[in-house]
Design a protein around this nucleic acid. Sequence first.
DNA 1: CCTAATCGGAGCGATTCGTTCCGATTAGGC
DNA 2: GCCTAATCGGAACGAATCGCTCCGATTAGG
Lengths: 137, 137
Amino acid sequence: MRLSSMADYAVVAMRAAALHCGGTRTNAAEIAAETGLPAPTVQKLVSRLGQAGLLNSVRGSGGGFRLARPAAAITLADIVEAIEGPIAMTTCATDTGDCAIEGTCGARPHWPQVNRAIRGALEQITLAQLAQEEVAA
Amino acid sequence: MRLSSMADYAVVAMRAAALHCGGTRTNAAEIAAETGLPAPTVQKLVSRLGQAGLLNSVRGSGGGFRLARPAAAITLADIVEAIEGPIAMTTCATDTGDCAIEGTCGARPHWPQVNRAIRGALEQITLAQLAQEEVAA
DNA sequence: CCTAATCGGAGCGATTCGTTCCGATTAGGC
DNA sequence: GCCTAATCGGAACGAATCGCTCCGATTAGG
């Protein structure tokens, strides 16, 4: 019920990237300096975020990355899924057959409902909202 | 973003306990047999759940435990908090001062809002709903 | 008073997570 | 056209948490 540190840092890093909203490319070192996160960790984060399609990255000298979509079109659910994989409370919701009590688990049919509720809550928070200084009422 | 196996099992165990709704005491071994969970694990679960006040346990020969409240008055949030502690996406939401980037973390003011949304989603699911065979629309 | 059964807490092993380092790739300068 | 420098991408190591199991404390029943 607590998201991993990597996902936590990813949100912070994405917020920092969003503050470069003018379309100017930034790089991992700059994000690390602005956020105070360890530089290698930021590198790993942008790598994962790039694979997920949230960041467009350019390699080589003078390269860097920028948001692939407007900040308003990126939600917390997108960022969390990019780092942690599908949002699911239980393993049985995504994988099949690896649960020993699958046969007798009467709670299983109810998990999709819970997952939808959680995911819906995260989809309502956009990166644009997080980029604001003040918290919305 | 994925709850621990212990919390997952706790939900299954609590559901099994709720099926003994007639007020009859059950014991850890019985729950283990019904759910297929390892008996020692069930013992640890009921211990934690008893401390949290969700189960009333009676020790000694012929002892056991039963729900401390009606199933409709126990929510997923209660069970998860009993096993995993306070529901919080980030550590900075509960603890203070242990975050290295606390000063520069602009995302921090927004986390309470997220936490409330998640917790609200879990509070809407009661143990009585989980005890039903069919999933509610 | 003794025995048996159950809850409660402590210890160990395994898996995952987080961090760090090194290689592959590409733009810029000579 | 070639070389250099800078950046992303993936792989390996160490640490911490989590999950499982065993043993002791407590209490009802005989």
